[in-house]
């Protein structure tokens, strides 16, 4: 279990507890958080679960695999060095406190 913080561009944020083994994407969709569309359900086909990982946390995540990196090129919002697909960030206890920023658009 880890508490994940989702920040929004309007300055608000939401924190939810995500069980270990679940993705940051599922943490958002199952808890009713807006802004993460997740059209393909986490199968690396759509790039609509884009988030910006807080720079302090970026190094602590395993780097994106090649297909995630390929999809990131197609995200609707600006691609930044901190861009990740939240379906590929699988939660474990070490991610307690992780902060991600939800971009303004996914499509």
């Amino acid at each position: 279990m880890a508490r994940i913080c989702y920040k929004y561009s309007d300055g608000t944020s939401r924190e939810v507890d995500v069980p270990a083994g679940r993705s940051v994407m599922l943490g958002a969709t199952t808890n009713g958080l807006p802004g993460i569309d997740a059209d393909c359900g986490g199968t690396l086909s759509c790039a609509t679960c884009h988030v910006y990982v807080d720079p302090a946390w970026l190094e602590r995540l395993p780097p994106p695999e090649s297909s995630e990196a390929d999809l990131l090129f197609g995200v609707a919002a600006e691609q930044r060095p901190t861009s990740r697909l939240s379906c590929q960030i699988v939660v474990d206890d070490t991610l307690d406190g992780l902060i991600v920023e939800v971009p303004e658009r996914q499509f």
Binding site: R22, L26, T29, T30, N31, G32, L33, A38, C40, G41, T43
Partner: peptide, 24 residues
């Protein structure tokens, strides 16, 4: 889409397949 693929091999719990959770 997972119903013809991953779900047959390793079933996903219904709440992980949901497009949105009840709270939404």
């Amino acid at each position: 889409p997972p119903l013809s693929k991953g779900h047959l091999l390793a079933p996903c719990p219904p709440d992980a397949l949901a497009l949105r959770g009840e709270a939404f």
